[in-house]
Design a protein around this nucleic acid. Structure first.
Lengths: 204, 204
DNA sequence: ACTGTAAACTTTACACTGTAAAAATCAGAG
DNA sequence: CTCTGATTTTTACAGTGTAAAGTTTACAGT
């Protein structure tokens, strides 16, 4: 093994990736509670103790899955943002729509991502190429950051709003989801709070 | 037992309440992962199978704890709202502050409450006397509901915003919590999004 | 006072989970 | 080919949820 540092173990092609993939499948098929080390191993066709050499316990597996989920999340956000209107407001709206879509289409994975602690753990790795999911939000919010202002303000406003809506939506707070494909009529009114985003910090 | 239908079992005074209390203690001391049927039973001083007669499995125990937590949540919201300015905007702001405070002071309980599914399960019981936690939000938002408008719009706007902020805060997204008692400087800017709440649905 | 009955609780048992250690297997270097 | 180290399996054990049977308790009826 001199030039290519590709992880090419013997038996299994790439067990680590296979385990993460199995985990995501279990997650989407059977929910968060069903994500188990042993089931993951069984699905990947290895013994129940095999994952121990690739992840630090079940927490490590969850973190690895969350990291992969975060990457997919970012891809979906990029795609959603590119699909809509390209003015600054339209980009934010499309981004939030993608955010909600991802949460609804991958509820277990979405929940896992945001229950893995500080989250900085997998952001840090990607921040080297500053292509993290948070970076997408930052880009999209940039046009609304007042000169000299902290970008974190607008970012937190947008993130809190869409994240809260998505979370409450998943929690089933707004009545049982009727299964309508155009997710919920409350999305637009909630997003309307961003109407005057980036305005000087007038007193409330 | 003729006149008082008080539940006065033989052995234990009121095991169900004791188990819920033990559960909340475990929750606040050791976090969500540590909340276990057997540990709960041990803490209450009964055998590990005793809870089965009071709750429907571990999910039932969690639901019961969530219900109690919801009641405490409501109390703290009422208290916070009463403590601040009494104009409509001030009441909303104080309510949200209480919301955030509760989440920060009881992270495990707060997380449990909002991960117990549809949440309608324990709201329904209380809705008879319409004294649910959601009722507090509804009252506080009422002054901003335009005539003929659906109250759900304003309620969802406020709830999404504060819930998302609290959740991201707990997830440790905004950098590690520095332990400052005045929770976070981002609270006010985020709440500023509610500046023109209740305005006619102008196009975004 | 005594028994009967239903509820609460305990005991016992089993399947499943995470984790750790030892044993077996395999890829590649020398 | 043999050796070495990483990978995987085997084996074992503690903790968890759940179900069934057995035990204790409170209370009603005679």
């Amino acid at each position: 093994m001199a030039d290519h540092t590709e992880k090419k173990p013997h038996h299994h092609g790439d067990l680590r990736a296979a385990l993460v993939q199995s985990g995501i499948e279990i997650l989407t098929e059977s929910g968060l509670e069903s994500l188990t080390l042993r089931r993951c191993a069984a699905r990947a066709g290895v013994s129940h103790a095999a994952p121990a050499h690739h992840f630090d316990g079940v927490a490590g597996l969850r973190a690895a899955i969350a990291k992969e989920g975060f990457a997919r999340f970012r891809q979906q956000l990029l795609q959603a943002r590119a699909a809509g209107a390209q003015d600054p407001k339209g980009r934010i709206l499309s981004l939030c729509r993608g955010y909600l879509d991802f949460a609804i289409e991958n509820p277990a994975l979405y929940t896992l991502i945001f229950s893995c602690g500080p989250m900085a753990q997998f952001e840090e790795d990607l921040k080297v190429g500053d292509v993290s999911a948070y970076g997408v939000l930052r880009e999209t919010c940039a046009p609304f950051v007042p000169q000299g202002g902290d970008p974190l303000v607008v970012e937190t406003q947008v993130w809190s709003l869409i994240h809260g809506f998505a979370h409450l939506f998943l929690a089933g707070t707004f009545g049982a989801d009727d299964g309508t494909p155009d997710h919920h009529w409350l999305f637009a009114p909630v997003m309307a709070l961003l109407r005057d985003i980036g305005r000087p910090p007038a007193p409330m």
